[in-house]
């Protein structure tokens, strides 16, 4: 579009030289068919292309590409670091959980131990008390038995005495005189039987 107006300008407004040039240009373009084949412009294009490529190459290789590579590497490093850190934290969490479980298990066994110990202590105390009580009971029973035996012995003695004296009285009142020795023997015989 711009070229259209430009060539129109050249042909109408400007001087003879310009007009001639424009006409020549058009003639050349028409004969060649396309501006791509106007070999007169080749050195110009090639020169500016080389300048452009050298500038782009220098900018890219000196500034842009090292910078982008550094940024990408840094990001990669950051990501790797973060991942490693996350992994470490995870390990720590697992270790903490293990420690917690261990502590819990330890506490539980300790509690069990204490319970068992206390139980055993109480049992021992109880056993001792029971044994002591048993012994006391046995002593008391023996004492009582002894007392009972004494009482019984004194009662038997009394029965002997009473029987003897009663027998002697009965014999006396019957009018017979018995000798004391014989009476005693007879009474002993009877009481025993």
């Amino acid at each position: 579009m711009a070229n259209d107006t430009h060539s129109a300008d050249t042909e109408t407004a400007h001087g003879a030289v310009d007009a001639a040039h424009g006409a020549a240009g058009h003639a050349e373009a028409a004969s060649a068919g396309m501006p791509q084949l106007e070999f007169a412009t080749f050195p110009n294009q090639i020169f500016w292309l080389m300048v452009t490529l050298v500038v782009i190459y220098l900018v890219l290789s000196r500034v842009a590409l090292p910078r982008i590579a550094a940024v990408l590497a840094e990001r990669q490093g950051t990501i790797a670091n973060d991942l490693a850190q996350a992994e470490e934290l995870k390990q720590k969490a697992v270790a903490a959980e293990e420690a917690y479980n261990q502590a819990l298990a330890d506490a539980r066994t300790e509690a069990h131990r204490i319970v068992a110990e206390t139980k055993a202590e109480i049992q021992a105390d109880l056993d001792a008390e029971i044994a002591k009580a048993d012994a006391e009971i046995a002593a008391k029973a023996a004492e009582s038995e002894k007392a009972i035996a004494e009482i019984r012995a004194s009662a038997v003695e009394s029965v002997h005495e009473v029987a003897k004296s009663t027998a002697a009285e009965i014999v006396g009142s019957l009018g017979m005189s018995g000798d004391a020795k014989a009476i005693e023997a007879a009474v002993a015989e009877r009481v025993k039987g």
Binding site: N3, H14, M34, P35
Partner: peptide, 12 residues
């Protein structure tokens, strides 16, 4: 094809 024409920036 006019769009492909090469022209000087300054002058003619």
């Amino acid at each position: 094809m006019d769009q492909f024409e090469i022209s000087p920036l300054f002058g003619h």
